[in-house]
Amino acid sequence: MVAKLKTVDKLTITFLVDNNIEWFTKLPPGFTHEIKIHLGEHGHARNPVTGVPIMEFEKYCCGAHGFSALLETEVEGSEPQLTLFDTGPESLSIARNIASLQIPVERISRLILSHWHSDHSGGILSFLRIRKDSAKIDSSKPCVVDLHPDRPIARGLAPGGLPNVIGQLATDPRFEEIEELGGVVENHPEGHTVANDTVYVSGEIPRITSWEQGLLGAVRWVGDEASMKGEWVSEEHIMDERYALVDVKGKGLVIFSACSHAGIVNVVRDAIDKFKRPVHMVIGGLHLASPDLLDRIEPTVDFLTNKIRPAPTYVLPMHCTGFSAKVALEHAMGGGCVPAGTGVRVEVAGDDEAEKRMFAPTVSL
């Protein structure tokens, strides 16, 4: 167990990048649509004739194939901590959505990268540039960029197996580029707590579930980066992947798994094993979208709904989860499967009385 992690009184999540935009579906208590945030909080211009706020869609968020979530953690008596988990795939979506949601970038003290894939790392330099250029920035409070040290030269996809590599992901930012924009690089292969000990970042995720076999067809270039001399090798397990979590008083663990190449069952089992706390929310890409992964959906849904007691209150299937898996989760969980997306804000408030009644969960396979 990681005893250093604090239980927080409140967690606020703002989704900055996701594949999906969702404005109209009914959401549970504590969830707020982007459109309501704009109309209720951001002071839209009003039509001079009707007097009604104008919905200026050019100032709203955009979706993109990737993931990024801003975590604000609060412990009574301490300053709230802002932590960014991933940055989406490129420079445009993160910049537009930060501006749209009026994110106080100067208050973000740490950026956590879940793993070295450009749909999660592609916005790092853009975010750091925006933060560096902010008029409100305090140069004495730099942003730590929390990374796994095993940065690849290149990664690609070979669905039919080597040597047929059909595409290479965009190159991840180099440590030197991050430092040039004011980021302070910290390399962490091990599990650790950040944000005044209110957020846990995992180390290597144990691969123990039989049907969770990584990203099929994933390959990595091994060789010399300067000359690009080397070869492609199979790398389906993406061992640098990490998850993050927050423990909310009276609610339990809120788990952030950006892509779940390790398998979401492995992620949740590791979190429960380490913290012995109920799971309140499972959030992020569940990596069940492509046709070759469809046989993983049924056992995954069964695990999340039947093999954990108590079962998670909510699952937010995002990014690379896929339509079929979302349908299966909604069928099994009803309103517990929440269609969150870019621009949605979630507030998870602690509960002192519920905390007194909490007990360690049980897990079976």
Rank of each mutant, 00 (worst) to 15 (best):
D146E: 11
R174H: 09
E236M: 05
V144Q: 12
G223N: 10
V144W: 03
P149H: 07
A170T: 11
R207W: 11
E180Y: 00
P159Y: 05
D146H: 15
L157A: 10
E236G: 02
V184W: 07
E177Y: 00
P152H: 09
G191I: 04
P163E: 03
S234F: 01
H237V: 03
G183F: 08
V199L: 01
P189K: 03
P159K: 01
A195R: 12
P159N: 04
P142L: 11
H237Q: 13
T171I: 13
P173W: 02
F127H: 00
V222S: 07
A158N: 12
L157Y: 14
Y200I: 01
G167E: 10
R155I: 15
L157F: 13
P159M: 05
R155L: 14
R220N: 05
A226Y: 08
R155D: 09
V184H: 07
G230V: 11
L125D: 01
W221F: 15
G214W: 00
I205S: 03
V165L: 08
T193C: 14
G203N: 07
R174I: 06
K141I: 05
I205P: 04
V194M: 11
E212H: 03
V144T: 14
F175S: 10
S134T: 06
I166S: 04
H148N: 11
D172C: 12
I178F: 02
